[in-house]
Structures are given as C-alpha cells and as structure tokens.
Design a binder for these strands. Structure first.
Length: 574
RNA sequence: CGGGGCAUAGCGCAGCCUGGUAGCGCAUCUGGUUUGGGACCAGAGGGUCGGGUGUUCGAAUCACCCUGCCCCGACCA
C-alpha cells in the first residue's frame, strides 16, 4: 500500500481516557476508535493484524482436525430457555424482542446454537467425534467495559465445540485442544501460562485458562516455583500452617468498640492469624437460593468468594446485610461461628487449630480459646481461602508465587451440561440412545491483539512480531528527487511481487515524521531510499529500532527477503 | 449498582475559585521556504464551553438535575 492512500489516523498525544498501554498505543497508532462503551471500530491496520492472528488460529485448529463454520449473532430466546440459561446468564445477555414479539438475544457464546444444530443432524456414534469452530463477534453486556480491547462488550472470539460419544474421547480432545492452544500462543511469541480454572457460568468439570503474563492483567494467577502447578486464584489450593495458640477453655473477652481483625489482634496483642474471620453470605442461585451461610477463614487470609459459592452449591454469593446477620444470631462486627442458626463452613487451614479468637456474637465482645472441634462441632471444613504469595504448593510443597495475567483463552470439558437439556442424542454402538459429551474452547481474538501489544511495545510504539505486523516492510522515500521516487517505486513493486506486505511512505513529509509513524504503528522492517545513499548506489535496510546497513540497490529486495525469511524461521516454533 | 474523578476545537490542555461575550500547543487548510529522525514564516478555518433548568443586566465560570466518559469493586474471551 502507498501511505497516502491509507487510513491511518495517528495521534501525537495520548488520549486522556486510555489507561493501559495497549489501549493507548492502539488508539495513537490509528488501529482502533471507540464507537460506544466497550464497542470499537477496527481500522484497516487493526483488521490486517486480526486477520493474521486468525490465520494462525485457523491453521492450528484445522491441523487439529476441527472444521470452521459460522453461526449467527442473533439467537432465539427459546434455545436459551431450553438450556436454562435465559435466567442464569443474567443481564450480560443482551435481550430484545422482534416485531413478532419473539424473544431474541445477541450471542455471548454459542453452546445453545451449536447444540441445536448438532442435535438435529446427529444420529450415529459413527458421526463422532466432531469439533466445530467459528471466528465471530460476540456481545456481552459487561458491567464495566474497560482498557480498550481488553474488556469490550462486543469482541471477536474463536469458539470451538466438540462432541463425543464418551468421556474418554472428550478427555483426548481436551488434551489435543490444550496442546493446540500451547502451539498457538507460542507461535505468537507470547509469555503465557496455562492455569487450572474455575468453570464460571459456562459450567462443566475441568477447565484451564491461558493467561498472557502482564502487570496490566485483570486476573491473579498462582503458580508453584518448583513444579508446574498453576491455577487461577479463584481456584488455586495451597497450604500454610495455622497459627494456633495453646489449647484453653472458651472464655469471653470484652473488646469495646474493637471489631476489625487488625484492631482486635492489636488490642489483644496476638498474631492476626490467630483470629477467625466469620463472614456471613447470602447464597444466590442453586437449590439453596436465598439461604444464608457463615464462612470462616483465618484472620490473615482472604475469603475466595468463588470457592464459597462452589461449596455452598450456589451460582454466586453476596455479603449479607446487617439484618440477615441479626436474623441468624450474629452481631455485625462481632460475628463468631458458635451457635449460629446456619451452615458454618470453615477453611481447612483452621482444621485442628486451637486457642483461636473469634467474635462472641455479642456487641463489644470476642471469645478466646476457640477450638472448632470442641466448640463448633457442626462446622464443615472446606477450602475457602485465597492463595497468598509464600504459601506452600499443595502438590509438591514448593513456594507459591502470584502473577497478573490476561486471560486470552479457556478450554472446558463440559460433559453433558448442555447436551442433556438440549437433547444432543445419538445411537451408540449397542444401538441405545445416548447423550453426547461436549467440550468447548475459546480464544479472545480481539483481546489477544491487545495482550500482544501489552507485551510487545517500547518507547517508540508497538513492536509486532513479524508474523502479525500489519505490514512487514516499511519503505521510506526521503526527498523528492526523481531518482528516489523511481528507485522506491521499483523496490515497492518487487516486494509486492514477492508477496511481502509493504507500506510505501511516499508522502511529502520530513523523514522524522515517517520514521516516527512507522515505529509507532510497529512495522518490523525498514527500507530507506534517499539521495545520500543513491549517490553510492545504495539504500538502507534494517529492523525497527536498530541501526540500518547499506545495500546496493540491485540487491536490496533479495537481501531484505532473506533477512525476513531468516527471522521468520527463528520466530516460528514448530 | 456502590465508591471516586472528569466533561472547553480532531488530540492534549488553560480559563472557572473572584461571572463581563473563549484561549494555548499539536493536528487541519492556503502560500512560501525547507526535506536523513515529529521543520520554519505568513495567513486561514474549526467550539450550541456534554445537555437542561435556575440565579443574574450578563453564565464556560455560581446552584440544582440529567447524560456521557474514566478509575476502584462484583462479571468474563
């Protein structure tokens, strides 16, 4: 492309409302523009990058035996009624009614539609397994879109769905997809990590997320320094000894006006880990919808609400109100686990601990010498605490560390969560009707583009991996002499003939402007044609942000191509 | 939805406290000089000061309401 024909609206200043680097650079370099909250235009440069990302994903998915199809964005409400997600999915599902009063929604994901399709066509086990995928726009009415492409409401996703005759076959496909994802993210040159994950609103049993490591990431992941255990903190299990004091009889201590764990520990001069935090929650969804539960963790731990929701059989939990707390025999600020009229779930770390301090369920008082086994016999021990840096690994005893990550992919072994209600049935080898087993596998394509920018940037702008850059070569004409113009054009044509994406900057701009723009938008390789070099019959070539070398005009394209080829093969990991 | 902040030209900002008819840098357009790392000179265009109501002789400025955006929390690719 000739630069003067391109729509590349670059900005010198950083837009004030862009917080993270990927958002700033994609805006500044003319890749994206906001249309409305969480919804963006992908400008020509962005589309070029997206197409290249998609090409890699397609290649790997196809290699793994998956087939591409395309499903609609508009989906009928009845499908969601059938899977029982019409209610469960909540306000994130954008619903609307058409002129015939049919309930419809914009697809946030496609389990319903694909199950409906497969259920209609699937007859025999001989048709299985099968893995179908698409790359398509999704819409989720996020509570708080932010960070540009990192959390949009409309975004591009690659979503794959596999169907199987049995659990073993699903397990094999899950492993294959896991390996495929490793290959994909490796090909993008990313520092990433697969971690065990919660299944969230999608449901199912096993799940792994793929996180690109970045400080701007919204997720916290825990990983062992010594073994390969890694998990989202929503799920990570780790070990830390409990601080327990010498056993003692249960006694009441007056703690006037002192209620937070920090204050109580200070007031009584004890380690904060010796206290018990008793948190009261109201359950949402599930069989116990609306019920209240008590959850206890050590004073120096944080409760992980997602874990609580799971053990309580809930979709989610929310902090109880003061009235709720009073209704079960507690006193806000002084709640303790004893004699509450609800289920008491206690974190495993407190199992066997003695001499603990907890609220007394009476204003201005705590109890000391608490021993769950003796004083709260109905307590159920479960994993509730959030992993902290420095915990011991639950597998090998190594040290746990925390990192921030951007979730760019997730794989799920769904089992029959959708195929059962959606009636995805087939005749098995014995001639019996059987429910198919399912897996699903997503990659956030537009988010991935942002995640790559988070990892690939410097002072000057974006530094795309060669394989993803919108143009691999930036050809800069310096000066307006006929010699420069003609030589540039000849080189430009040769690159085009060689099938190289080249952006030729033939604008009547000063060199500085051209260099800055190319570095901002992130073109990896530069070819510079100027009168100074042409006097010696040479032009300069070189990688972005590195020094350039002179090459005779006649050899430029050949040398450049071989440099590009070399870089390509060292970048590619097969 | 709860908590915090912001809204003035395409982008970045000043002006507001102490009301008096809107300004700076960059970008854009015209002419000229420049052309090896975001040029210079001269001129020009572009703003219902987010919207509404009120106070006032007079509101970007003061008051109230609304809307939008950004950040922190719950959600997720």
């Amino acid at each position: 492309m000739r630069y003067s024909n391109c729509f590349i609206p670059t900005l010198r200043d950083v837009p004030a409302d862009a917080e993270v680097i990927s958002h700033q650079l994609l805006l500044r370099a003319g890749y994206i523009r906001r249309v409305t909250s969480g919804v963006y235009d992908y400008l020509p440069l962005a589309l070029r990058v997206l197409r290249k990302i998609e090409a890699v994903i397609r290649e790997e998915m196809n290699r793994a035996g998956a087939q591409e199809l395309l499903m609609p964005m508009v989906q009928p409400g009845e499908l969601w009624e059938k899977s029982e997600r019409m209610e469960k999915y909540g306000p994130e599902l954008l619903r609307f009614t058409d002129r015939h009063s049919h309930e419809s929604c914009l697809g946030p994901t496609h389990e319903e539609v694909i199950c409906d399709l497969v259920a209609r066509e699937l007859r025999s086990y001989k048709q299985l397994p099968m893995n179908l995928y698409q790359i398509q726009s999704k819409f989720r009415d996020e509570i708080r879109p932010r960070f540009g492409l990192m959390r949009g409401r409309e975004f591009i996703m690659k979503d794959a769905y596999s169907f199987h005759a049995d659990a073993d076959c699903l397990a094999a496909e899950y492993d294959k997809m896991f390996a495929t994802y490793q290959r994909i993210f490796t090909r993008f040159g990313l520092k990433f990590r697969p971690v065990e994950a919660d299944t969230g609103s999608i449901g199912g049993s096993d799940s792994h997320e793929f996180h690109v490591l970045a400080d701007s990431g919204e997720d916290l992941i825990a990983h062992c320094a010594d073994c390969d255990y890694a998990a989202n903190v929503e799920k990570a299990i780790s070990v830390r000894p409990c601080i327990s004091a010498t056993p003692a009889a249960l006694s009441v201590v007056e703690t006037p006006g002192v209620s937070s764990v920090e204050d109580v520990a200070g007031f009584l001069s004890v380690d904060i880990g010796q206290l018990v935090k008793t948190l009261i929650y109201r359950i949402q969804g599930g069989a116990q919808d609306g019920a209240i539960v008590a959850a206890c963790v050590a004073g120096d731990d944080q409760l992980q609400e997602i874990k609580l929701a799971h053990v309580a059989g809930a979709d989610s939990v929310e902090m109880a109100t003061d009235d709720d707390i009073a209704s079960i025999g507690g006193v806000t600020g002084f709640v303790g686990p004893q004699q509450l009229s609800v289920r008491v779930l206690v974190d495993n770390r407190l199992h066997g601990a003695t001499g603990l301090i907890a609220g007394a369920n009476r204003r201005d008082a705590h109890v000391a010498g608490l021993d769950f086994g003796r004083d709260v016999p109905e307590a159920e021990f479960v994993d509730l605490r959030e992993t902290r840096a420095g915990d011991r690994c639950s597998r090998c005893g190594g040290e746990m560390q925390l990192s921030r990550g951007i979730e760019v992919g997730q794989v799920f072994a769904l089992g029959k969560r959708y195929t059962e209600p959606m009636e995805v049935l087939f005749q098995d080898r014995q001639g019996k009707r059987s429910v198919a087993t399912m897996g699903c596998y997503g990659i956030g394509v537009s988010r991935l583009m942002a995640a790559i920018v988070e990892q690939c940037n410097d002072e000057a702008g974006i530094s795309w991996p060669l394989a993803l850059a919108p143009f691999q070569v930036g050809l800069i004409s310096m000066g307006r002499s006929d010699a420069v113009r003609q030589t540039s054009e000849a080189i430009y044509r040769q690159f085009l003939e060689a099938g190289i994406d080249v952006l030729w900057d033939e604008r009547n701009e000063r060199p500085g402007v051209k260099f800055k723009d190319f570095e901002l938008i992130g073109l990896p390789f530069q070819v510079v044609v100027g009168d100074r070099g042409l006097k010696e019959g040479a032009v300069e070539i070189g990688w972005r942000q590195q020094s350039r070398s002179s090459v005779p005009v006649a050899d430029v394209v050949r040398v450049a191509l071989s440099e590009l080829e070399q870089a390509r093969s060292s970048e590619a990991v097969n």
